[in-house]
């Protein structure tokens, strides 16, 4: 699933997949602004058929946080 997640991150932020790691964040990814953040949530929810809560969304600071919340929704990473 990590590969699927990275694939989506790479698509949404329009960056090479090799540049993504657990520490990737709005500081390290240029396109990661609030709008692209929403676009990412939208893409993840459509892909995994889940719905994040607003606190999960606001809690996300890094890619590792996304993995943590995907696990909460029983998405195996």
């Amino acid at each position: 699933m990590t590969s699927k997640l990275y694939e989506i991150l790479s698509q949404v932020f329009d960056i090479d997949i090799s540049l993504i790691n657990d520490q990737s964040s709005p500081e390290t990814i240029e396109n990661w602004d609030s709008f692209h953040g929403l676009a990412l949530i939208d893409a993840l929810e459509m892909e995994f058929n889940i719905q994040f809560s607003i606190s999960e969304i606001t809690d996300v600071k890094t890619v590792a946080d996304i993995k943590k919340h995907l696990k909460n929704h029983s998405i195996e990473i």
Binding site: S34, F35, L38, A39, I41, D42, F52, I54, I57, T58
Partner: peptide, 15 residues
């Protein structure tokens, strides 16, 4: 989508 509305004043969901 209430979440998108609160997070970014989005009134037509991105989807």
């Amino acid at each position: 989508d209430y979440r998108q509305y609160y997070l970014g004043d989005v009134k037509i969901s991105l989807e």
